[in-house]
Amino acid sequence: MSAYRVASRYAKSLLELAVERNELDQVNSDMTAVLSLSAANSSFSDMVKSPVISSEKKTEILKSLIGKNASALTLKFFDLVGEKGRTGFLPEMATAFLRLRNEHLGIQIAEVVSTIQLDDELRNSFKSIVKEISGKSKVNLIEKVDANLIGGFVLRVGDKQLDESIKSKLQQLRLDFTQNLYEKKY
């Protein structure tokens, strides 16, 4: 079974239990901690995917790293994942959980890359554009600054991208000039 399917199934179950027990915020912070550990430390990812380390040891390590402030539901989830031998999919499960949580709460994640730091007026403009594109009322805007764009912005909403940067316009112009559209008349 693919990693996406496994992660989605476990994440969906965890989300349903978290909503049922009113622990959605706590489980969300636990899954965010798992993702940040996975991104910041490659040895953590190697540990959860290692076939040499036993599932019990992996669960014990997970509980010691996350367990200080983790909810009881998250700790039980770690036990279940370890029991089933699925700890290698834990980072994917955390990603899937966060995606499903945002869908459940009606939050659209969008990323805007610009050459300057956004002020409140621009930020609100981008949020209204994202609301119009996605049809969702809540928007979480991730802002990044990239001076290589020269000017303009790149807005990503789900699998859609709006590229209004000077860099991409120059690249398109360069591509247009490489095509020889000149025809001899004689």
Rank of each mutant, 00 (worst) to 15 (best):
A11L: 07
S114L: 06
V52F: 08
D46T: 04
L75I: 13
T59K: 11
Q108L: 05
A72C: 01
K169I: 09
L170A: 04
Y10V: 13
S71C: 00
N102S: 10
L17R: 05
I129N: 01
V48Q: 01
I150K: 03
S8H: 11
K169T: 10
S168V: 08
L80C: 05
S43Q: 11
I142V: 15
S43I: 05
A18G: 01
A33K: 12
R156D: 13
K58Q: 06
N69H: 10
S42M: 10
D120Q: 12
L155V: 11
E16L: 11
S128L: 10
G67N: 02
M31Y: 10
A40W: 00
S43V: 08
G158S: 04
D79T: 02
S128C: 02
I66E: 09
N180Q: 11
A96W: 10
E92T: 02
G151P: 12
E83C: 01
S29G: 00
H104M: 01
N69W: 03
L170C: 05
E143H: 05
G106Q: 04
G106E: 10
D25P: 07
E121R: 10
R86Q: 03
I129L: 15
G135M: 02
D30K: 01
L37H: 04
S36K: 13
G82L: 07
I61Y: 06
A96N: 09
S2C: 04
T95K: 14
S114W: 03
P51T: 04
G106K: 04
R123L: 12
I107P: 08
L37C: 03
K167I: 03
F177C: 05
G152C: 05
R5S: 11
L181V: 13
R21V: 06
A147I: 11
E16D: 15
L105V: 09
V112L: 06
E121W: 06
K184H: 12
A7K: 08
A33D: 08
I129W: 00
E20K: 05
L90C: 04
L175K: 15
D25G: 02
S29V: 04
R174G: 00
N28V: 09
I61D: 00
T95A: 13
A70L: 00
T87C: 12
V48H: 00
R101M: 08
N102Q: 08
S125K: 14
Y4T: 14
G106S: 07
L118D: 01
T74G: 05
K131M: 09
M31D: 10
Q117A: 13
M1F: 06
T115A: 12
